[in-house]
Amino acid sequence: MTSWRSVLARIPLHVVIIAFALLWLLPTLGLLVTSFRTPSDIFGSGWWTVLAHPFDFRQYTIQNYIGVIYRQGLGRSFLNSLLISVPATFLSAFVAAFAAFAFAWMEFPGRRALFMLVVALMVVPLQMTFIPILPIYRRLHLSGTFPGIWLAHTAYGLPLTTYLLHSFISNLPKDIFDSASIDGASPLRIFFHIVVPVSVPALASVLIFQFLWIWNDLLVALIYLGATPNVAPVTLTVANLVTNRGQNWELLTAAAFVSAALPLVVFFSLQRYFVRGILAGSIKE
């Protein structure tokens, strides 16, 4: 039952939210419009000038998208990006969730110091790790292989994912563990049957960002996988749309949307997990 007063009272809320969203959308909208314009139009006038006659389709071109989509090797590089991102994302989320669970709810010597160490390592710039690691990778025959890059991405993402998941898992109410422990459930059972289900929103948000960062990575892939077409990710194909002097950069406007399409679809499909958690209904002790 909503009265007209409560509807009226909510107007400022809607105004604030929509204004914020428009502000956030504006730069992206600019890129979207630009991606449908010719280089001479881009140079000659601001992108918003098309809004004067938004339905005059002569001012648009799909040439930039054609230049990206018919790029030789784009399909293969999409597949490579998936082969890199999906296993690496799940691997890092699971390794991190295991660790976060133990750090939050188990007692063991050095727990605090180790946790601090893991988190502090977030700040290590990954560029500094390449040269010490690569010779070892060569010896282990890991360079140029997908498992090699899964491990690397897992490692670089671990500190942050562990930290975030720890903050969720450590805030779970204590009693759910106590009752399970009394029932004689093993920690592994508790992890899969209690921790994972109640952490779905947290896991989903960590997964999506981990996926995104790996999907958008170029440097780590170049270092550990190399740039041969059979392993190179979509970010390399996109970067190579432009000549070494920067010519054809307008293709990058279209490429930005083509390469962001999949992460966005993943985000939309994960949205149903970003719902009120199971625990939100129960009262904390």
Partner: peptide, 16 residues
């Protein structure tokens, strides 16, 4: 084919 990052990639791979 490596465009912009080639100095970084070459230097790293040389060192390794």
């Amino acid at each position: 084919v490596v465009g912009r990052d080639r100095p970084a990639i070459l230097a790293t791979r040389l060192a390794a």
